[in-house]
Amino acid sequence: MKLSAKKIVYVSILISQALVLNIVESFIPVPIPVPGIKIGLANIVTLVTILMFGFKDSLIVVVLRTLLAQLLVGNITAFLFSVSGGILSACIMYIVYKRYSRYFSLVGVSVFGSVAHNVGQLLVASIVINNFLIFSYLPVLMISGIIMGIFTGFVANFFRKYIKNIEYNSRW
């Protein structure tokens, strides 16, 4: 499979944008100081990548953004939580976008991804601490995931019209 230089540049820019949003987000205080609740700004870029390029490239963006962020500011355990949530989120968002877009808007796709991200992180946490009671924390994370998913979905939807211009004016 031959990749064009143009596509490599676009995906690299998306990875950079996701990394910057991830780092900026770490400086934004969350109104409710509950562990694991984040805005999920980098998920905007994941949604944009799904719209522009599809599933494979969205996974590349998620994994490389997560790896680079953890190399800069985190540790290996945080990487496992983040990458598992990010991969599950990208998978669910892609499936909902491709198969159920007639039922769900981009905001709905984002909400599914946000909730999936939280489930993925709890799954890894339950394995790491060897205790599945951590899933009792899921209702709190689902509520925050729905709220944050709505926000990131609206932002990604705002960029959708600009993405279409890029899609139609380029051949990968």
Rank of each mutant, 00 (worst) to 15 (best):
A90N: 06
L72T: 01
F132R: 03
V48I: 15
L106Q: 06
A78N: 04
S84T: 15
F151T: 07
F154Q: 02
G40E: 05
N157G: 05
R99K: 15
G149L: 01
T66Q: 08
A156C: 07
S136V: 10
I87S: 10
V96Y: 02
Y168W: 09
I44A: 07
D57Y: 15
S84I: 13
T77P: 03
L71D: 04
L80E: 00
G108L: 00
N169H: 08
M52K: 06
F53Q: 11
A116W: 04
G145L: 01
V107A: 02
T46H: 07
V115L: 12
F158M: 15
V83E: 07
F158C: 08
P139M: 07
Q121C: 00
G108K: 05
P139N: 03
L106P: 03
Q121G: 03
K56Q: 12
G149F: 08
G54D: 13
L72Q: 03
G85I: 14
L123C: 10
V45Q: 04
F154N: 00
I39H: 09
K56S: 08
K98N: 07
L88N: 06
T66D: 10
L68Y: 08
F154V: 12
A78W: 10
G54W: 05
I39F: 13
T66R: 11
R65F: 04
I92M: 12
G153M: 00
L68P: 09
P33V: 15
G145N: 04
K161H: 06
G149H: 06
R102F: 14
S144K: 00
F154H: 08
L71R: 04
G108S: 07
I50E: 06
V63Q: 11
M142P: 11
L41F: 13
L64D: 15
L64T: 14
G113E: 09
G149C: 11
G40H: 01
F158H: 15
Y137R: 01
S58F: 10
Y100L: 14
I166N: 10
H117P: 05
I134L: 14
T46I: 11
N157D: 12
G153E: 00
I76K: 11
L133V: 14
F135Q: 02
L133N: 13
V61W: 15
L59G: 05
